[in-house]
Amino acid sequence: MSKIVSRRGLISGLAAAAGASGLALAARLASRYGLIPPDSGGIYGIGETLTYASQRLLMSHHSLAREFDRRHISKVCPVNGPPPEDEIYQRHLAGGFAEWRLRVDGLVARPSTFSLAALKRFPPRTQITLQVCEEGWSFIAEWTGVPLSYVLNLVGVRPQAKYVVFFPFDSFWDSLDMEEAWHPQTLLAYGMNGQDLAAGHGAPVRLKVPRQLGYKNVKYLASITVTDTLKHIGKGLGSSAPEVGYAWYAGI
């Protein structure tokens, strides 16, 4: 019996060692290929990492979010929360955003600022996509804006860039990995259903990321920073969402 036990012990030991080294190797590879989300700590981080890594591998060829016909546009497009009370924002809102400028800086060759009129002069993209709130409700709307990739090309992203961070006039800052940032459906949207973006929907410009849930679509943009690390921004978890208990990656 003891022989059997020790034999089984040996096999389990070898299996455990193989498993542990396999996991260590997988973790190193995942880190190298950018498959570990910034909020990967803790027990829940295991699930988040599995989800983020598997979906990133699955979507490695710029898969497009579903787009719809005009007749699918929802009659009810709820506004989730009022626009920021921030004094500067309120002044821009009152002035029709004429003085508003979007700053783009960080790991770029040419840090720049763009007026709303300048963004509207760039080649636009219009898409009718589904926006799903993590609470459960959803609507379909037509969004018009300039692809983020166009602006990134203008400012010249440096090769070491890993994330693009979005700072709004409210506290819900967020970030995207480069895969999502370069994606053709990732827009700096200034129009919704054929009109200028309403204040409640994120005027003057909001981010549209239709392959992720609603809360990833940052409203009231003020500035954009390209970076190679998220460690020194906020609590270092990649966005404001994990700081209040929600996942950084919102592909599901």
Binding site: R66, V132, R211, Q212, G251, I252
Partner: peptide, 8 residues
């Protein structure tokens, strides 16, 4: 229900 998975 995943917008990422249904994009694929």
């Amino acid at each position: 229900m995943s917008p990422a998975v249904t994009s694929v």
